[in-house]
Design a protein around this nucleic acid. Structure first.
Lengths: 195, 195, 195, 195
DNA sequence: AAATAATCGAGACGGTACGTCAGGTCTTAAA
DNA sequence: TTTAAGACCTGACGTACCGTCTCGATTATTT
């Protein structure tokens, strides 16, 4: 959210922003990403359209913030086994991508981000940073245990894991079976282990 | 394409359909998926809007057909090594997804498909069938060579490979390095090989 | 009204145009000129805004046509007396300006016309042409009878008569007493008669 | 202008009011009446919007005061001839109506006044009082000289003179030729003279 | 000196209207 | 029956103003 500039003038009412976020989440689940309009969000939030545009530059930014707010700073547990550590990382991606508003928003949201150069450059940092940080940690542990070599292609693996989850859930639309994270992690762990 | 209902009346002019496909591909590369409108396609093709709607039910179907027309029936070469076979499969996905009109269309197109129940069900068959057929063959060879066990999760692996390629190219927007297929295939091959 | 270009395409539905005119007249009397919006006219007419903009370039043109449609081609009667002839001309101006929708529209409408160079140039021809034609005839008769000289300043007299009626009715808002035309005509007739 | 309610609190800064008047006059000439917004006036004056609304109730009142401030208390000269006296009155109307900011403001301003019942009632006193006072004096002289009878319809003549000037200059937009006042006065004088 | 109160610039607030554009349907005359 | 053309209704877009309100700060009068 763009922070209010300086201390001058009437400060923004936090309740407006909160009402907008709430309305956006609801409409997202009711009508999907394509069926969500800024005007409808404003109307349901009991707010003028300007009040939305003052805070967010457009639908993608608004929906991104409405959906991906969970801080998700939990540390990945050190299980001592690469495959299990990876499973935890994949599970966090699944949790992030399959929450109801996220599932409704993701394909359209990523499409809009991908279509806009400025937004496209932010996709990794916005959607994948927590997972990437965890992955770096997990890779570090695995290297110290000798399970993997150094110089693992973090971003490529991350894209693969995220792509697998996104494609499986978001596009093809399968429900996330309870062992999905484990199955993906098993292949990935074996794939990147040293010999 | 919807086939012309046989029989009476003036037959459809095949040149109209071809002009529409051509115009759609051009506009896709100029303005992207979101910036393509049926009206603009019709105008550039020198055709009435009805002539478009008579053949395709809407933008997703139209763009899908304009972009994914290549038959792509080439057999995957039997290299005798799982990793190499997989690399060929991944390369075919890369080729399919990174062709200029496809790259411009894919994120938005998949989002529209995913948002429509009837279309969502057809994603695998429309975008992944050739790759899936190749993957089945490759897995069959590998099993016969003893490199892998039976009962490999074809669809999950397919989603993973496709998701990796799509996310890496379509969303994050990296150019496909010449060794991308090989790198993905290496991890995947090791991941699914029998111990 | 802009006439539909050539014979190609679907012809405009005359009922739409008529419904727009009717709605505009009603809203004008209910809310006045400033309170009339194109969107409200379209909504009441059961028509899309485009259908309005396709026919009229904006509110001034729309309201002008909605209000000043009466052909008003009646000839001015030859009474044989300048003052009486002028009274008939003035009365036609009063009738034109004091009809309920016209009275509601005139001040704002003329202001918008005056503020737009292209429209400003058309004020005389749009609002005063019938009166001017009558005035020319009346002056011609008067000259032939010897009541006046030649070279009367038609436009200045016309502006004076119209200004008097407009200012008296439209701005100051007096009801048009039954002898108003006569009173204005008396002064004007005396004013322009030859000694 | 609403006078500052005496007494407590910080007194109004007279420079703010002056800056607002100045900004309003400038913007009026740059953008016309319709193109003038309170927000823009406040911004150019370096003032908050409330500082404007605290002093004036809205655009019409603000513009009226910005434009029609000239006291114009000069006495009409007694020329001894009705036509010449009238010419002076008409000339004062021309001067008032054709000053650049007034010319830009008048049609829209009068339309807004006419559209608001409370304001409409004040039009004569606001815009025509000086001219009316002069006209009464001039008629008085003329009656004493025997040029006219008593009981001249002051308001009707005034509306006619003002309407003629307003319509000729403000609406139709002619530049005021140097003899305009004389030409109008000649007709009017003859029109109201006793036989 | 302290309390009270109105003003100041700034700008957020909920609304309304703007004029444009796309979607998908329908209606014409011509082929 | 299809064709090109284009009108049709719906509804969203992002912007501009409206007139009100809420800030912190300032400047006066009243205790």
């Amino acid at each position: 959210m763009t922070s209010s500039p300086a201390g001058r003038g009437r400060p923004r009412d936090e309740r407006s922003g909160a009402a907008i976020m709430k309305a956006a989440g609801e409409l997202l689940m009711e009508n999907g990403y394509a069926g969500l309009s800024i005007g409808a969000v404003a109307a349901r939030a009991g707010v003028g359209k300007d009040t939305v545009y003052r805070r967010w530059s457009g639908k993608p930014e608004l929906v991104y913030e409405a959906v991906f707010t969970a801080a998700d700073t939990a540390d990945v547990p050190d299980t001592g086994v690469l495959e299990e550590d990876l499973a935890a990382v994949v599970q966090s991606l699944i949790d992030e991508f399959s929450a109801p508003p996220a599932a409704a928003a993701l394909p359209g949201l990523l499409a809009d981000f991908a279509a806009t150069p400025e937004l496209r450059a932010t996709i990794r940092s916005r959607f994948l940073r927590p997972a990437r940080e965890r992955l770096v940690v997990v890779f570090d542990w695995a290297e110290q245990r000798g399970e993997t070599g150094a110089d693992l292609p973090v971003d490529l693996v991350l894209d693969t894991l995220a792509g697998a989850v996104f494609f499986h859930l978001g596009i093809v639309g399968e429900r996330p079976g309870p062992d999905l994270a484990q199955r993906i992690a098993r292949v990935a762990a074996k794939g990147i282990e040293a010999r």
